[in-house]
Amino acid sequence: MRILVTGQRGFVGQHLKDRMKARFPQSEILSSSPDIRDAEAVDTAIAACKPDHCIHLAAISSIGDARQDPNHAWQVNLHGTLHVARSMQRHAPEGTVLFASTAEAYGSTFQRGLPVTENAPLAPGNTYAATKAAADLALGAMAKEGLNVIRMRPFNHTGPGQSVDFVVPAFASQIAHIAKGLQPPEIHVGNLDAQRDFLDVRDVCDAYLDVLMTAPSLERGTILNLCSGQTRSIRSILDDLIAISGIKADIIIDPTRLRPSDTPIARGDATLARSTLGWAPRIPWLQTLDDIYRDSLQQATANGLSL
């Protein structure tokens, strides 16, 4: 397989390349596409390489970044996605486009208190979620016009190498710096009561690769939730990381880390992914946290040496 991965230098992209090399050593990962906001450049690149598949990861993925610069988020997450999809339909119509959407798009639908399935309405509550939901819906319409697209809606996923803009590495980084004596024993946090369904990024990458193997049997426009079916409070994740590290620290609520529209509980149903792909999360959660903490310790050590 010749696979184009947009956003391959990002957090998920790096893990996806590792998993792809391990599972499909004969596959070719094509050079990343140009700035996806440039429709002409994207079209030229895809016309030249004509990939068998395209895994579209490139996005503004931070809720905070999207809120601070919404125009940029819309240009990348919606218009950039359309540039990639249209070029694939034009130059590689038999190829599969796997779109990394997000469960954030369900938004206020989570307030019903039930695990959401793929049929649940999209009701995004922030700019990031809105841009991804718009792209998700647009690709669904293009599927009716012949685009071979599969839409994945993963829930929160984390792992080593993720930016501290996200909650788990943000905790791990602070704890690692405390363990190394690089900051006072205080951990600054936002809302600890929110409950989320967390996955290891490597399990998510395996699901993406499972789709490529199953794509011929999937209906165009298929939507697949990716989740464990188990919610965890943000507080419990902090407690687990503190236990792994063995440190003692004061917990400080930081108003700047509180989101204006935080969903209390986000529950999902991944029955369809299990039945169609045979996929299920395999990496134990405590292993995920341990891997993140070890990575944070390495980063903290490097920061300490550079002081």
Rank of each mutant, 00 (worst) to 15 (best):
P51Y: 13
G125R: 10
Q75Y: 04
A135Q: 08
N126A: 06
W74M: 06
N126G: 07
H91L: 00
V116Y: 10
C54E: 13
T109S: 15
L98W: 02
I55V: 09
A133W: 09
I60P: 00
Y128G: 01
E94K: 14
H72V: 12
L122E: 10
V76C: 01
T127W: 12
E118H: 07
A134F: 06
S101A: 01
L82S: 03
D65I: 05
H53E: 11
S61W: 01
L98H: 07
V97E: 09
A66R: 07
P121L: 02
G113P: 09
H56S: 00
L114K: 15
F110E: 11
T109G: 13
A135P: 03
C54Y: 06
I55G: 12
L98A: 08
N77S: 02
G140Y: 06
W74H: 07
S108R: 14
A120H: 08
C54L: 06
L57F: 10
T81H: 00
P124G: 00
W74D: 02
D65P: 01
R86H: 14
A100K: 08
L122D: 03
V76R: 03
L122A: 05
A85I: 04
S108H: 12
Q68D: 15
Y106Q: 06
A123P: 05
P115R: 08
G107Q: 10
T109K: 05
R67S: 14
A66S: 15
L98E: 12
H91P: 05
